[in-house]
Amino acid sequence: MSLFWIVIRQLAEIEAMATSKKVITKEEWEKKLKDVKIRKEDMNKLVMNFLVTEGYVDAAEKFRLESGTEPDIDLATITDRMAVKKAVQSGNVEDAIEKVNDLNPEILDTNPQLFFHLQQQRLIELIRNGKVEEALEFAQEELAPRGEENQSFLEELEKTVALLAFEDVSNCPVGELLDISQRLKTASEVNAAILTSQSHEKDPKLPSLLKMLIWAQNQLDEKAAYPRINDLSTAKLEDPAV
């Protein structure tokens, strides 16, 4: 009998602990949020930063005219950067390399890894297009010397050349190199390098802010029940789950 009561008491305590979390109602929460002041200019700058970093040049130009927010970079350079990115994404790697070099010859001269990845992408495109002889010649003339300079490049090169050994490349162990995601990976690497060379951060600030919001909510979850934002795209405040 006494054991039964002990169990009951413990259950009650656990329940009490769970409900002892502070509950904040939607009205209270909204009132608190109202007291937080955010400057319009700051928001505009965040938006501009997002447009510029992601390369939405037309939108950025319009936004500049309409909101009067000055971008922290010459908008013309965005067009150039986007042209490079697009060239890689559509497989015109040689064209992309020339464009990067026109933009700033230092980028590829001082970033061996990026240069190697672009050359590797060029090799992948040759293989994709079935230009076997050309691919081999390119691997030997352009890529092999890079492999001699750097052991990890050599390993990547071997993996890429292995594509030639398979009849059905879509089903081989290194097949993912031919995937469109490989192009996107290379493209975003170039994009980041160009941004860095322009003294610009390579990631937009908006996603970091949202990440911080989610982190802060997770922290708060342990202490209180409050109107949470579950869907970032609508930013709807959910009713606190009691």
Partner: peptide
């Protein structure tokens, strides 16, 4: 000149 530049950038050999 541009072609030469594009050939040598990043390429020690």
């Amino acid at each position: 000149l541009r072609e030469l530049k594009n050939q040598i950038i990043g390429n020690r050999t």
